[in-house]
C-alpha cells in the first residue's frame, strides 16, 4: 500500500490520545483505591483536554483522507457491517467521554452514585465508560485493517493487539512526560507502565514482523488470471501513465528504503523510549521523558508508514508492468 499521511497521523494521534486517557484514568482509579497518591482535579482535567486534543487532531487528519468530508456523517450509518463505520462512531464517543471526563474532573463533579460514600464516583463512572469506548476504538481501528483478509500482513489479531499496545505505550509515555511537570509522584507509575507496554508492544510488533516476513501468499499471479504454469509474467497492465491502482497501492520505494524504515522505527519506537524512560524514571527528569515521547511518536510515524507500505495488496498482481 502507499501510505497516506493523513491516515498515519490519524492513527498515531488517536493512539496517543487513547493511551493518555487510559493512563490518566488508570492512575486516577488507583488513587481512588489509594494505591497512588491523589492529584488535583485540574491534573486530570488538563490531561483529559490534552488527550482530547490528540483525538481531535486525529479526527481533523481523518478528514483530509476523505474525498467528501462534508458527507462524513454518512459514515456512521453502516456500523452493522463496517469497522470503519464503527470507528467513525467510536471516535466521537471516546472524544465525548474524554471531554466529559475532563469536565467532571475539572469541575470536581461529585455524586454518591453507588452509595459507596467515597469521592470520585462520577469520574470513575465516566472514566470506565471512556475506557470501554477507548478499547472499542482500539478494536475498531485495528479491525479496519485486520478485517481485510486480502491484506495478509494485516489480517491477524496482532494488528488489533499492536494498535492497542502501541497506542497505549505512546499514551503512557506521554503521561509520564506530562506527569513529570504536573504530578511527579506518579511519573514512576506511568513510566513503569510505558516501559512495560513498550516492551510488550515490541514483542507483539516483532511477532507481526516475523509473521509477515513468512507470509504464504494466498493469491498468486496464477490464481489472479487462472492459468496454472510456473512461469507467468505480466507484460502490460494496460495503461502507462499510472492510475488509481498504481497510486494507491504502490509506495514505489526500494527494499532498502523499507528496511531502513523498519530499523528506524524499531529503534525510535522501542529502544530509545525504553532507554530514556529507564534513565528518566528514577529522577523523573522531564527532558528525558519528553524526549522519550517525541522519539516514540516520531518512531510511530515511521512504524505506521511501514505498516502500510509492507502490506502487499493482491490487486498488485494485476499492476506489475507498464507496457
Amino acid at each position: 500500500m502507499n501510505p497516506a499521511f493523513s491516515v498515519i497521523v490519524l492513527t498515531t494521534l488517536i493512539g496517543v490520545g487513547q493511551g493518555l486517557f487510559l493512563a490518566l484514568f488508570s492512575s486516577q482509579a488507583f488513587t481512588i483505591v489509594k494505591v497512588l497518591p491523589t492529584q488535583p482535579n485540574g491534573y486530570y482535567a488538563l490531561g483529559g483536554a490534552i488527550a482530547l486534543c490528540f483525538l481531535g487532531g486525529g479526527l481533523v487528519a481523518s478528514f483530509f483522507h476523505l474525498g467528501h468530508p462534508e458527507r462524513a456523517w454518512r459514515a456512521a450509518t453502516r456500523w452493522r457491517t463496517s469497522w470503519l463505520s464503527r470507528e467513525v462512531i467510536a471516535l466521537p464517543a471516546v472524544m465525548g467521554l474524554v471531554f466529559l471526563y475532563a469536565i467532571v474532573n475539572g469541575f470536581g463533579l461529585e455524586a454518591d452514585l453507588y452509595g459507596w460514600n467515597i469521592p470520585g464516583q462520577v469520574a470513575l463512572t465516566v472514566g470506565t465508560l471512556g475506557v470501554a469506548a477507548t478499547l472499542t476504538l482500539f478494536l475498531c481501528t485495528g479491525m479496519i485493517y485486520g478485517a481485510i483478509k486480502f491484506l495478509q500482513e494485516w489480517a491477524t489479531p496482532l494488528t488489533v493487539v499492536n494498535y492497542f499496545l502501541l497506542g497505549s505505550a505512546s499514551g503512557f509515555t506521554f503521561a509520564a512526560a506530562y506527569a513529570s511537570f504536573m504530578a511527579p509522584n506518579v511519573v514512576k507509575f506511568y513510566a513503569g507502565w510505558a516501559i512495560t507496554l513498550t516492551i510488550l508492544a515490541f514483542f507483539t510488533r516483532a511477532a507481526a514482523l516475523f509473521r509477515n516476513a513468512r507470509i504464504k501468499r494466498v493469491a498468486t499471479v496464477q490464481t489472479a488470471i487462472g492459468v496454472r504454469h510456473a512461469k507467468v509474467q505480466q507484460r502490460s497492465m494496460g495503461f502507462m501513465g499510472g492510475s488509481y491502482n498504481t497510486r494507491e497501492y504502490f509506495h514505489g520505494r526500494t527494499v532498502l528504503f523499507l528496511k531502513s524504515v523498519k530499523w528506524i522505527f524499531l529503534v525510535l519506537v522501542f529502544l530509545v523510549p525504553v532507554a530514556l524512560l529507564w534513565t528518566g524514571l528514577p529522577e523523573g527528569r522531564p527532558a528525558l521523558l519528553v524526549a522519550a515521547f517525541l522519539a516514540q511518536y516520531v518512531g510511530l510515524l515511521f512504524e505506521r508508514w511501514f505498516f502500510f507500505a509492507q502490506a502487499s495488496h493482491p490487486q498488485n498482481l494485476y499492476y506489475q508492468f507498464v507496457g
Binding site: L66, R74, F150, S243, Y244, E248
Partner: peptide, 24 residues
C-alpha cells in the same frame, strides 16, 4: 453517498475500483 474514503477499494482483491480524482 460516497465520502471518498477508498476503503472499499482496499477490500477489493481485484483492483477493480477506481477513484475519480475530480469528483472525489
Amino acid at each position: 453517498k460516497c465520502i471518498g474514503c477508498k476503503y472499499c477499494s482496499w477490500a477489493c482483491p481485484y483492483g477493480a475500483r477506481e477513484f475519480d480524482e475530480n469528483q472525489k
